[in-house]
């Protein structure tokens, strides 16, 4: 298990410009053990950040360290203990998954027999069984993603970068992959930096979420903080929109600021009023059945809605 509190990734003022294009701007992030989600629209700088951390790209300015190694001076040491699953296709079609993963293990410095043993182990963990002996050209997208994941884990890294591992997967395969990502962080004890442009996915698997937007850090905090209570109350009554509206109007008349959301009514906090009592009494007066009464929570999506207007436009364009 990676020790708690250990810093896995740290960047200071990390910047990458391609001519006029600013891929990353003055990025300061810290990533600890467990699963960290890196969220951003396409083109937000997620893949660029991973490539810089792997030493495949040189930053324009700024510094970064991975597992205590400086990316500027210790790229080789970093790549020895880090696994990488790229977003794009990267598998030769005429080689079997088994042969390929063994070869990749050897390229990470494992001896011949250790490479074979670890490949068999890891391919089983990612769920490639008999298919492993077939050429990968005939693999489905789900199987290819598993083979890509296997080569990233085969040398038992301390950290893996998973770039869009659920890309192109159907819902069932997506759930499987997310469960696997969760297991890598929790059971295998390997720190994970996983990117996605789908916020909902990362809500499920990450301990921590870093949100990038057009190369800027929008927010970085524990997943729980993103989902913290907003202070509002979510109330739902039995019936359809008619009942909802009758209920909402009565609440408003009682002095509670509220608005509809879906089939529910969101009541904004009104500290001077006994909110729960008013809700109960209003429902009783109207003869409506109360179905749900719960604190409202943030969603990861809200981070983007709260972002600066210019940033939102970037996301829309990206």
């Amino acid at each position: 298990m990676t020790e708690d509190g250990e810093q896995v990734i740290a960047t200071t003022g990390l910047t990458k410009h391609y001519g006029q294009v600013h891929a990353l701007t003055d990025l300061d992030i810290e990533v600890g053990p467990g699963v960290t989600g890196l969220v951003g629209a396409n083109g937000a700088g997620k893949s660029t950040l991973i490539k810089i951390l792997l030493g495949l790209l040189e930053p324009t300015s700024g510094r970064a360290s991975v597992l205590g190694h400086d990316i500027a001076t210790a790229g080789e040491e970093i790549r020895r203990v880090v696994g990488y699953m790229p977003e794009h296709d990267c598998l030769p079609p005429d080689v079997s998954a088994s042969d390929f993963v063994v070869h990749m293990a050897r390229m990470s410095g494992l001896g011949a027999s250790a490479a074979r043993e670890r490949s068999a182990d890891v391919l089983r963990h990612v769920g490639l069984d008999e298919e492993r002996y077939r050429p990968m050209g005939g693999f489905s997208t789900g199987m290819k993603q598993r083979a890509k994941l296997a080569q990233a884990l085969v040398h038992d890294p301390r950290l893996v970068f998973l770039d869009e591992p659920t890309n192109g997967l159907d819902p069932a395969a997506r759930t499987d992959m997310l469960r696997l990502v969760r297991r890598i962080g929790a059971d295998f004890g390997i720190a994970v930096l996983v990117t996605s442009h789908l916020l909902g996915e990362l809500e499920q698997v990450s301990d921590h979420v870093v949100v990038l937007d057009a190369g800027h850090l929008l927010r970085s905090s524990a997943t729980g903080d993103f989902l913290e209570q907003t202070g509002s109350l979510l109330v739902e009554v039995v019936g359809g929109t008619t009942e909802r509206d009758r209920f909402g109007e009565a609440l408003a008349a009682a002095g509670l600021p509220c608005r509809p959301r879906g089939t529910a009514v969101v009541i904004d906090p009104a500290p001077q009023l006994p909110v729960h009592d008013l809700v109960r009494d209003t429902a009783a007066d109207l003869g409506l059945g109360l179905m749900r009464l719960q604190p409202d929570r943030h969603h990861l999506e809200d981070v983007f809605l709260q972002g600066p207007a210019s940033a939102q436009q970037e996301v829309a364009r990206g």
Partner: peptide, 18 residues
């Protein structure tokens, strides 16, 4: 050509060999 065409070059270069 193979490593470049299938982009497995990225997997090699993400490993210790410079």
């Amino acid at each position: 050509s193979r490593d470049l065409r299938h982009r497995s070059i990225v997997l090699y270069l993400a490993r210790p060999l410079p």
